[in-house]
Computed example of a mutant assay.
Amino acid sequence: MSEPTGPRVGIISYCDRLRTNAHVNHELYARAHGYTYIFDIAPVAEPAQHKNFFLKLAKIKKFLPLFDWLFWIDDDAFFTGRKTTLTSFIEAHPDATIIFCASPKDTGLWTWMSSGTMLIRNTELGRKLIDATIATDLAKAREWWDDSVYGYWTGGDQDALVYQMMTNPDFAVDGFYAQLDYAAFNCRPRHFVAGGFEHFVLHFTGKDKGRQSLDFAEKWGMSEALTYKKELANLRGLYPADIPPRE
């Protein structure tokens, strides 16, 4: 493991049930670069006005004060290009408070932002963004939303983040956000044509995430955590996801 240098970077993820072995993948990536990884599966009360994906914001709010930068990664996303560092994106966008990717547009269903993988800076504005997003009136945000500009409305934290960044004057700061191409850290399985480690981050979408990850692993000769097989075999204390067999 390399010695940590530069900003204190944390990586956090959460789930209410194990669907994949992404938590093992995340930990191994974090170890390689001296980052702190927290897989916080403790129950959390949902914000009164929201359901579903807003739980991630509660986790971000909980851990953001411990770091200079926090990378949120969903439990259906994997680090598949371990040599790439998170600090490389931070250094490329030194003024940004939040760094995220757009989704790919090659299937016709796209979003201006993907909140499944994103970097958030621990500043007053960064913390204020999380609080404002949690407090968002989604009905008001939906009325404002323009599908032609921002893509598919998901009805979750992702849309609330976009709404706050675009309408809240507190965040009308030059360089407040950095929107990157999906290839930075939001690739899909179809983008891997030369091998399972071709891109930095693989993000599964749709249904049956556990089955998708196992099929990808089988295709490219990887472990179920989308790592090298021998590497995973040497670990102890792995709690495998309960993935149903193929029908």
Rank of each mutant, 00 (worst) to 15 (best):
E198P: 13
W112G: 06
A102C: 09
G221W: 05
K83P: 00
E3D: 12
E91T: 15
F200L: 05
Y37K: 12
Y14M: 10
M118K: 12
D106V: 13
I98Y: 08
R19H: 07
W144L: 06
K140G: 04
S148T: 15
S115L: 08
F200S: 04
G34E: 08
V201M: 00
F200G: 01
R127L: 05
S223M: 02
D181T: 10
R127C: 10
K105V: 01
A225F: 13
S2Y: 12
C187R: 07
D174R: 14
L119Y: 07
L138I: 11
F79Y: 06
T84Q: 15
L180T: 05
S2R: 13
E124P: 13
H50R: 04
N25P: 01
R190N: 12
G206Y: 06
A233I: 05
G210S: 11
T133K: 09
V9G: 00
V149S: 01
T85P: 01
F216S: 05
F192A: 10
T205A: 04
D76W: 09
F71L: 15
K219P: 02
P104V: 09
G10T: 10
F204P: 03
G151Q: 02
K105W: 03
R31L: 15
D146K: 13
A96I: 04
Q212A: 11
F78L: 09
I60S: 03
T227I: 08
G151W: 02
W144C: 05
K229V: 15
R142V: 00
A184I: 11
Y177V: 10
T84I: 13
F67L: 00
A160S: 14
L129N: 12
G206D: 07
A132R: 15
V149Q: 09
E198Q: 15
A102F: 03
R211P: 00
L226M: 11
F197W: 09
R8I: 03
T36Y: 01
